[in-house]
Write a protein that binds this DNA or RNA. Structure first.
Length: 594
DNA sequence: GTTAGGG
DNA sequence: CCCTAAC
């Protein structure tokens, strides 16, 4: 399990969310700390990102905390056992004086850095930084404890406490869960860890060379900011956002959340605002008041003064109920997206893409054949919450037939031919325009042919166990086909299917004469099954096609004409020739000449 | 090979 | 759509 340790101070579940300030360590079986890998860090970050802090919080194994580099040199002050919640923290803080001490410490550090750098420049010392660290490591005794610490470092530690140990009564709740820092350092056999693991803060050779004296972060390049970041936090960052970096570094340097967004000049450990304007509406608050440490995130302002302790309590309550606020909220805005976010985003995008592809391939024709949807006026049906939606049948819908149950999903503009059809329609309520329909059909026909329907037989036919062949897929009848069929029947007469096929379905290789016959049968059934005029249509939406009422009417006319009454199928009209011609008067205005 | 009709 | 019997 992991835990995040913060600068020698308390850990609220919400505070540990910051991957920069807090270091992640894993508690090994024997109780010692092992640095978390980058992936582990990421993992925890993600957890925290999602507000799943409880996973960390509830971890039984969390027994210790590790100070980050800022306080590496400080002695641990948290001494609270695991199972004593509510135990008041033993150490208290001394507010004001210690802040100054910390500032001194920062200056001290910077001074030392300067010296180190000078030393390096003259002597070519390659690893001056670690030398610096090692210098301080000398204060470790052989047990790896930190019994001897110079005063400044000590005061620095106390300063760290200021920020977070505002109220002992608040700290106890968190600290008690994490055990003592002393425990972390208690393993005599592993003093090396402090040197070798950079999860234990600073041992990754921080480069303070950029922190000499007063720092003007504004003038630094990203690369320099990275160095600065590393120098400040002891770890690398890949964040490219300058302002983020500057804020972070500034926070790290000043241990303050009150970072002006406009300027990042740090002088003597404090911010010096270039312009008096403080962007995030904080301009009214002095930032250089050495006696105050303000942690001003949204939504509350906190200061160290006694009168403001309630604020901290409020803040803690907020943390408990609402999750991350305070400093993190302010930083959140400029935080780079988390890995999980990116993954989820790309997941969604790819899912959308797949859906699109699938919907294209759902085309009945598709089987390795071209899925050029434009070429096929095919009814596309998908289930939408149990409701069947017909998305594309509009190609011939242009013939002026009302097509119920059509819910267009098509978002791009309609095809040209459809537009032409729609606007060129005579709206004789009965008969489609001969010429337009004819044109449209030819157009569609052509497209269908082009799209590879001819070769379609190869792919959509599969041999059966009986030795015959069987179509792989049902091919829904399009409105075009239905109309062709009707017209063909009217021309040649019902029953002369092979002739109709030759005449009207020559380009539809997948429609056999049997298919035509079957379809006609269905049409007959349909036309007689429902009450006249566009009424039954909408009720039978389960049908493979919602056939326009006009067509069904026509079918019925033809059927009656030929005495093809479904219930008592006498089959007299079999010799259709004369019958068809004789019925011409009925359809004089219709598509006779197909 | 077509057609009609049942499955 | 498939299958099959009957043309």
């Amino acid at each position: 399990m992991f835990m995040a340790a913060e600068d020698g101070s308390t850990l609220s579940p919400n505070q540990i969310a910051d991957p920069v300030v807090y270091k992640l360590v894993r508690v090994d079986g024997d109780g010692r700390f092992v640095p978390a890998t980058d992936d582990e860090v990421m993992e925890v970050e993600d957890l925290l990102e999602d507000g799943k802090n409880e996973k960390v919080e509830d971890a039984e194994q969390i027994v210790g905390c590790i100070p980050t580099e800022g306080t590496l040199f400080g002695k641990p002050h948290v001494e609270i056992s695991n199972d004593m919640p509510g135990l008041p923290q033993s150490e208290t803080f001394e507010a004001a004086g210690e802040y100054n001490a910390r500032l001194e410490y920062i200056e001290d550090v910077l001074q030392k850095v300067k010296q180190e750098e000078r030393l390096r420049l003259t002597c070519g010392l390659p690893n001056y930084a670690s030398a610096y660290v090692n210098r301080d490591r000398k204060s470790f005794d052989e047990d790896g404890r930190l019994p001897v610490i110079d005063e400044k470092l000590q005061s620095n530690l106390s300063l760290q406490e200021i920020t977070h140990s505002i109220s002992p009564s608040l700290n106890e709740n968190h600290v008690s869960k994490h055990g003592s820092l002393g425990d972390c350092l208690k393993h005599p056999d592993k003093p090396v860890e402090f040197e070798s693991s950079d999860a234990l803060c600073t041992t990754s050779n921080p480069d303070f060379s950029l922190l000499k004296g007063d720092v003007c972060l504004d003038n630094l390049s990203i690369r320099e900011l990275h160095e600065c970041f590393k120098a400040t936090f002891g770890r690398d960052t890949t964040v490219k956002d300058k302002s983020w970096l500057k804020r972070r570094i500034a926070m790290g340097l000043t241990h303050s959340c009150d970072i002006p967004a406009s300027s990042f000049i740090i002088k003597e450990g404090k911010f010096v605002e270039e312009s008096s304007q403080n962007v995030e509406g904080m301009s009214n608050f002095p930032t250089t008041d050495a006696l105050k440490i303000e942690c001003r995130g949204s939504p509350t302002t906190y200061s160290l003064e006694d009168k403001d302790h309630h604020h901290f309590e409020d803040m803690e309550l907020d943390h408990g109920s609402e999750g991350q606020h305070d400093e993190r909220a302010a930083v959140k805005r400029i935080r780079k997206p988390t890995r999980r976010y990116i993954e989820e985003l790309s997941e969604v995008e790819s899912r959308e893409y797949v859906q699109k592809v699938i919907s294209l391939n759902k085309n009945p024709i598709s089987d390795g054949v071209s899925t050029n949807s434009i070429a096929r006026p095919i009814k596309k049906v998908y289930s939408d919450g149990g409701r069947t939606v017909i998305t594309r049948l509009d190609s011939l819908g242009g013939s002026g037939f009302q097509v119920p149950c059509v819910s267009r999903v098509r978002r791009s503009r309609p095809r040209k031919d459809v537009v032409a059809l729609v606007f060129a329609l005579p709206d004789k309520d009965q008969n489609p325009s001969v010429t337009v329909t004819d044109e449209a059909e030819k157009n569609l026909e052509q497209k269908q042919t082009v799209s590879g329907n001819a070769s379609d037989d190869n792919t959509s036919v599969v041999p059966t166990s009986k030795g015959g062949v069987r179509r792989k897929h049902h091919r829904a009848w399009t409105l075009v086909e239905v109309i062709k069929l009707v017209e063909g029947v009217s021309k040649c007469g019902a029953g002369r299917w092979s002739e109709i096929k030759k005449l009207s379905f020559s380009s539809y290789s997948y429609r056999t004469s049997v298919d035509l016959k079957d379809k006609w049968r269905n049409l007959l059934k349909a036309s007689f099954a429902q009450t006249p005029v566009d009424e039954g249509i909408s009720s039978r939406k389960h049908a493979s096609i919602s056939i326009p009422a006009q067509i069904l009417l026509r079918v019925r006319e033809l059927a009656e004409m030929h005495a093809q009454i479904p219930p008592s199928n006498h089959g007299q009209g079999k010799l259709g020739g004369g019958g068809v011609n004789g019925s011409m008067h009925e359809m004089s205005s219709s598509a006779v000449c197909l």
